[in-house]
Nucleic acid binder design. Structure first.
Lengths: 151, 151
DNA sequence: TACATTTGCATCGTGCGCGATTTAATTTTG
DNA sequence: CAAAATTAAATCGCGCACGATGCAAATGTA
């Protein structure tokens, strides 16, 4: 009885947890130049793609609730990256708009994904493999979301 | 110029980040029964495999520094899951030993990995795919660790 | 043996994540 | 229309993660 299934290296949960943290760490040097944290960078990715959207829409895309987003976005407002504005049509929602500073940061961010890819790519890790992993994880994400919404 | 590479769905970082959180959330109901958080569960996985080891060895396995582990393990000591003991040979190191309560919890934990697998498995996600993903992530983990230690 | 360096742990501060709860605005329903 | 239910934010509390710093024990070196 050595309970193989309880061994760290046999579990799927641990590699995902650790690679996630390692990737965040890999982003760090690039994001630090811009004065951003990783979740702040994710919010900007959403806004660069779709400016002036409601806060809950950002949460839907990043799978974050308002108890995480609300203070995060307020910090970003203090950094002059974006502005929060109550909607007139629906006084409950807050719309988020990039400031000039927030818009300009996009230019600095453009080369980051490629730089990160280069950190990862070796003779052992090919672009094909990375794409495959991405697709698998996106599928998992959908499945786990379904599971958790059903309850 | 629509900067495809900056779109959320084209980045590899986001799916890993979100699946990692979704998996932690999937563990939650099982861990709550045991009164554990996810990182605490990981520490127990290490100890069940290898009791009475130094704190820094736990950190090496989980890729966590003492500034995270130290308070985490103190909380677990308060919960009577383990005991901390200074080594006689080297007064700097603290050895961690499971209590009876900590050892017994292993029996409750044994069925968890399988339950979680069942949550994930569908006609779209096969065991083969999960194993493949695990191997890929373990390889990535090694590469990212090398990269970050070289600097 | 003296002194510099390394190692293991602890503490502090900041920023997430997230369950739980509150408040206010809007929508649904009888 | 009025009451009930839903929705969007905000706030609170707790537990990670992690960079930075400090301290004491151990190790390396001249």
């Amino acid at each position: 009885m050595d309970n193989q299934q309880l061994k760290l290296n046999n579990q799927i949960c641990f590699p995902i947890y650790s690679v996630s943290r390692l990737i965040t760490k890999a982003y760090k040097p690039f994001l630090e130049e811009m004065g951003l944290t990783y979740p702040q960078y994710l919010v900007l990715l959403v806004l660069w793609e779709n400016d002036n959207i409601a806060m809950n829409k950002i949460g839907e895309k990043l799978l974050l609730n308002t108890n995480t987003l609300s203070p995060l976005i307020k910090r970003m407002e203090k950094m002059d990256l974006l502005q929060r504005k109550r909607s007139n049509k629906d006084e409950r929602s807050v719309f988020i708009q990039l400031t000039e500073k927030g818009k300009k940061l996009k230019n600095t961010a453009i080369p980051i994904p490629e730089k990160l890819l280069n950190t990862l790519l070796t003779e052992d890790v090919t672009l094909t493999e990375i794409m495959l992993l991405k697709d698998t994880l996106n599928k998992w994400s959908d499945i786990l979301l379904d599971r958790q919404n059903d309850k």
